[in-house]
Amino acid sequence: MIVPFDIIILIFLVITALISLRVRDLLGATMILGVYSFLICLLWAEMGAVDVAFTEAAVGAGVSTVFMIATIYHTRRHSSD
């Protein structure tokens, strides 16, 4: 556990979460959610939860982004808010 690293990542987490909810282009929002997942994966690796970090890297940053893009491709890309 490295405290400065911890604090920096946590601040970035809040920023990416807010941005991904502000962006109106859903494809962009999904990619930023992927960045969020990757940051939280780094955070867990830093906390010593390597298995959880590995799962999040494979699932959150990888597969769930692909699922969302697959849905956006078949629906509308623009969001009203």
């Binding site: 909810l21 859903l26 929002a29 906390m47 959880v52 969302m68 009203s80």
Partner: peptide, 29 residues
């Protein structure tokens, strides 16, 4: 949020927040 996909993004963030809480409990200096 008005858009259903945006609601799901919010749900993902909610979920990771809870997981973050659990993992934080298990940390030992």
């Amino acid at each position: 949020k008005n858009n259903l996909i945006k609601k799901l993004i919010g749900m993902s963030i909610f979920q990771t927040a809870i997981i973050l809480f659990y993992v934080s409990i298990g940390v030992k200096t």
